[in-house]
Simulated assay, not measured.
Amino acid sequence: MLFVSRPHLCSAFSRETEQGIGHYARARRVERAKTMLVGCCSVAQVVTRLGWTHCSTFSQAFKQSPGVSPIEWRNSNSQ
């Protein structure tokens, strides 16, 4: 659709943002998950709505960013 090869797109994206497309997409999903968790969605709902296949995969990806589990993050940010 963009009329460029995948390697060219990945290279250009990395050059402009200093991160890979996969890393960028995962970071955006985690940011969306944070919003959903504060909005009273359960972890299972977040996993389903954002397209993760397993809760454990989501928890691992989430924990890499803020350094805490999704439940710990929600509990500390829902006041």
Results as ranks from 00 to 15, higher is better:
Met1Phe: 06
Phe3Leu: 08
Phe3His: 08
Phe3Pro: 00
Val4Ile: 14
Val4Met: 13
Ser5Lys: 12
Arg6Glu: 13
Arg6Asp: 12
Arg6Gln: 12
Pro7Asn: 03
Pro7Phe: 02
His8Thr: 15
Leu9Cys: 05
Leu9Thr: 07
Cys10Asp: 15
Ser11Pro: 01
Ser11Arg: 13
Ser11Asp: 09
Ala12Phe: 05
Ala12Glu: 12
Ala12Asn: 05
Phe13Cys: 04
Phe13Gln: 01
Phe13His: 06
Phe13Lys: 02
Phe13Val: 08
Phe13Arg: 03
Ser14Asn: 11
Ser14Thr: 12
Arg15Gln: 09
Arg15Thr: 14
Arg15Asn: 09
Glu16Asn: 06
Glu16Trp: 04
Glu16Gln: 11
Thr17Ser: 04
Thr17Glu: 10
Gly20Asn: 07
Gly20Lys: 02
Ile21Phe: 04
Ile21Thr: 04
Ile21Val: 15
Gly22Val: 10
His23Glu: 14
Tyr24Gln: 02
Tyr24Asp: 05
Ala27Glu: 14
Arg28Ala: 13
Arg29Leu: 15
Arg29Phe: 03
Arg29Met: 11
Arg29His: 09
Val30Phe: 04
Val30Ile: 15
Val30Thr: 05
Glu31Thr: 12
Glu31Ile: 06
Ala33Thr: 09
Ala33Pro: 10
Lys34Asn: 01
Lys34Phe: 01
Lys34Tyr: 00
Thr35Gln: 09
Thr35Trp: 01
Thr35Ile: 07
Thr35Arg: 07
Met36Cys: 04
Met36Asn: 04
Leu37Val: 06
Gly39Lys: 03
Gly39Phe: 00
Gly39Ser: 12
Cys40Gly: 02
Cys40Tyr: 00
Cys41Arg: 10
Cys41Ser: 10
Ser42Met: 01
Val43Glu: 13
Val43Arg: 10
Ala44Gly: 06
Ala44Pro: 00
Val46Thr: 08
Val47Ile: 07
Thr48Pro: 00
Arg49Ala: 14
Arg49Val: 11
Arg49Leu: 14
Arg49Glu: 13
Leu50Ile: 08
Leu50Gln: 03
Leu50Val: 05
Leu50Thr: 09
Gly51Met: 06
Gly51Lys: 03
Trp52His: 03
His54Ser: 11
His54Phe: 07
Cys55Gly: 12
Cys55Lys: 12
Ser56Trp: 08
Ser56Gln: 14
Phe58Thr: 12
Phe58Lys: 09
Ser59Ile: 11
Ser59Leu: 02
Ser59Pro: 05
Ala61Val: 13
Ala61Ser: 15
Phe62His: 03
Phe62Pro: 08
Lys63His: 06
Lys63Thr: 15
Gln64Asp: 11
Gln64Leu: 15
Ser65Lys: 09
Val68Thr: 15
Val68Phe: 00
Ser69Leu: 07
Pro70Tyr: 03
Ile71Val: 15
Ile71Trp: 08
Glu72Arg: 09
Glu72Tyr: 03
Glu72Asn: 11
Trp73Thr: 00
Trp73Asp: 01
Arg74Thr: 00
Asn75Lys: 09
Asn75Leu: 07
Ser76Ile: 00
Ser76Cys: 01
Asn77Met: 01
Asn77Gln: 09
Asn77Asp: 00
Ser78Phe: 02
Ser78Asp: 03
Ser78Cys: 05
Gln79Ser: 05
Gln79Tyr: 00
